[in-house]
């Protein structure tokens, strides 16, 4: 009897481990966490532009009555390159797309825009990644949909994929 038990014990211990592991995976800590800012007005901010010729981005720019998109990106970020064509398509369809360059240098951003296109109406430089916290972003890229009164209405974590474009345009249309 004791022997039978001793032989099955390892299996039982392993099953226990599997159960715990599945529960652990289920409550996986690395899942994208949605910003609690959705539904909130955008925080006050004012960012410098790329250079003297280009205006920066401020919270007041997002309260002008038009629905806008704000894209948090970095020239150093690979998925940002992947989403560039989608942002171009959005801009071509008439959407106003603003950008915040997170922890970036002017020259790098200029090279990035030259390479991957510049669909942005305004670009704010955020050398210290402050906006990432203000918008409640966990990474880069992230894109926020903001209504005419400056309230954040939706958030896309990670790169915008081709299949997201229609959805985004439809939601912008609905809010206008």
């Amino acid at each position: 009897m004791i022997r039978r038990l001793a032989v099955i014990l390892p299996l039982a211990a392993f099953l226990l481990f599997v159960v715990i592991a599945i529960r652990g995976l289920d409550s996986d800590p690395s899942r994208p966490i949605e910003s609690g800012m959705v539904g909130q007005p955008v925080p006050d901010f004012e960012l410098e532009g790329l250079n003297d010729a280009n205006p920066g981005l401020a919270a007041s720019d997002l309260r002008q009555g038009t629905v806008t998109l704000v894209n948090l990106f970095g020239s150093w970020c690979l998925p940002c390159r992947v989403e560039a064509p989608q942002l171009e398509r959005l801009a071509a369809s008439g959407a106003v797309v603003h950008a915040v360059a997170i922890r970036d240098e002017t020259q790098d951003v200029e090279e990035f825009l030259a390479e991957y296109g510049d669909p942005f109406s305004r670009i704010g430089m955020d050398p210290r990644g402050r906006m990432q916290i203000e918008f409640g972003a966990t990474g880069v890229p992230e894109t926020y949909l903001i209504d005419g009164d400056g309230v954040i209405r939706a958030q896309w974590i990670g790169e915008i994929r081709p299949e997201n474009v229609e959805e985004i345009l439809a939601r912008m249309e609905a809010l206008q």
Binding site: R3, R4, V7, I8, P10, L11, F14, L15, V18
Partner: peptide, 13 residues
């Protein structure tokens, strides 16, 4: 691991 432990439980005795 599960397979090996079942095999062990069956054969060890």
């Amino acid at each position: 691991v599960g397979g090996a432990l079942i095999l062990y439980a069956l054969r060890a005795s």
